[in-house]
Simulated scan of single mutants.
Amino acid sequence: MTHVGRYLGPATNWKTMQQTEAQAILAASLNLWSIWETNPTNASYFSDAQGASDGKTEAAYAQSFGQPKGTAIYHTIDYDVQPDAYSRILEHFQAIKAANTGYKVGVYGPYGVLQYLYQNGAADYYWQTYAWSGGFLVSFAHLYQYQNSVTVAGINVDRDRILLDPGGWQQIMASTLQRGSTGDAVKTLQQELNTVLGIKLTVDGIFGPSTEAAVKSFQQQYHLSVDGIVGPQTEAALKAAYAAKSGTTGKVQQAISLIQQAQSLLKEVE
């Protein structure tokens, strides 16, 4: 087990993650991803107004747990969605994105509606359930839920496969860097950006407009979400790129080469 997905929300809700639980998960060096769910079990739940409300409310709970900006919060679609509801669900997620304050938007649901939302750029992260999916799996899923209600270490859980980085967070990521950040972590960031991009940022430990522009340039070049925020995904990509550029490890370069070859083969298959 490397990752745990848990619900945000009021402490009075039986399924909501408690602060002590979040601390225990992170202290165990597990990666934590967040879920927002109220009652998304039929088409009538989804609307512009509900999406806007969800986007604001879930961000407030995420902040209360210390979840770093730039990480994902997954919103669920928990029923057998029919195509006639796709457009209103899209509007719902567009409203979430507009109301959200710095967090990435994730979506959980079955195959068909995820395909539609992905084609319309509705979310940043995708978590598919096997339920109502007819045995199909989307090619872009970050998470795949393949089994429900099993017991692990005495706890009833659903099992998921991690297919791509799901945008979760760890204790070490509590200091997500963005404009206004200062300190040694910013100096390290500036040094790494200089090496990777071949630029000459002033290494002063101040995350200002120039550093933000460099981060966005890196994100664009490495096909990440371009928001100028150094969250888990951007940091991991930058560390790998820096190691390759600076020659600190030949294995990293070899891994990158292998990944590129695999991507090329996948494109040929497609």
Rank of each mutant, 00 (worst) to 15 (best):
residue 198 G to M: 07
residue 165 D to P: 03
residue 197 L to I: 02
residue 174 A to S: 15
residue 188 T to C: 07
residue 176 T to N: 05
residue 182 T to Q: 13
residue 168 G to K: 00
residue 178 Q to H: 14
residue 197 L to Q: 07
residue 163 L to F: 05
residue 165 D to Q: 10
residue 159 R to P: 00
residue 188 T to W: 01
residue 161 R to K: 08
residue 184 D to F: 15
residue 179 R to K: 13
residue 174 A to H: 10
residue 177 L to Y: 00
residue 185 A to H: 09
residue 172 I to L: 13
residue 197 L to D: 04
residue 161 R to M: 12
residue 179 R to A: 07
residue 183 G to T: 08
residue 188 T to D: 12
residue 187 K to D: 09
residue 177 L to N: 04
residue 161 R to Y: 15
residue 166 P to I: 00
residue 189 L to K: 02
residue 176 T to D: 08
residue 178 Q to L: 14
residue 178 Q to V: 08
residue 182 T to N: 09
residue 177 L to E: 07
residue 169 W to F: 11
residue 172 I to R: 15
residue 171 Q to K: 11
residue 194 N to Y: 09
residue 194 N to V: 05
residue 191 Q to T: 11
residue 190 Q to M: 03
residue 179 R to L: 13
residue 164 L to S: 03
residue 177 L to K: 07
residue 185 A to K: 10
residue 163 L to V: 10
residue 162 I to A: 04
residue 180 G to A: 06
residue 160 D to C: 11
residue 192 E to A: 07
residue 174 A to L: 10
residue 166 P to Y: 01
residue 182 T to Y: 11
residue 192 E to K: 14
residue 184 D to C: 02
residue 160 D to A: 07
residue 187 K to A: 09
residue 189 L to G: 01
residue 182 T to P: 03
residue 160 D to K: 02
residue 164 L to C: 01
residue 190 Q to K: 02
residue 195 T to I: 12
residue 181 S to L: 09
residue 196 V to K: 02
residue 186 V to H: 04
residue 182 T to D: 02
residue 197 L to H: 04
residue 186 V to W: 06
residue 186 V to N: 01
residue 169 W to S: 08
residue 193 L to S: 09
residue 181 S to Y: 12
residue 170 Q to V: 09
residue 160 D to P: 08
residue 163 L to Y: 04
residue 170 Q to K: 11
residue 185 A to D: 15
residue 173 M to V: 10
residue 188 T to G: 15
residue 170 Q to H: 02
residue 161 R to P: 01
residue 179 R to S: 11
residue 186 V to E: 04
residue 159 R to F: 00
residue 185 A to Q: 11
residue 175 S to W: 10
residue 168 G to C: 06
residue 159 R to M: 09
residue 198 G to V: 03
residue 175 S to A: 13
residue 176 T to C: 10
residue 177 L to M: 13
residue 188 T to Q: 12
residue 180 G to L: 06
residue 168 G to A: 08
residue 170 Q to L: 12
residue 196 V to H: 00
residue 175 S to R: 14
residue 173 M to I: 08
residue 184 D to H: 13
residue 165 D to V: 03
residue 195 T to R: 13
residue 162 I to T: 10
residue 196 V to Q: 01
residue 183 G to N: 03
residue 172 I to A: 11
residue 180 G to C: 05
residue 172 I to K: 15
residue 189 L to Y: 14
residue 174 A to C: 05
residue 164 L to Q: 13
residue 198 G to A: 03
residue 195 T to P: 00
residue 174 A to W: 01
residue 177 L to W: 00
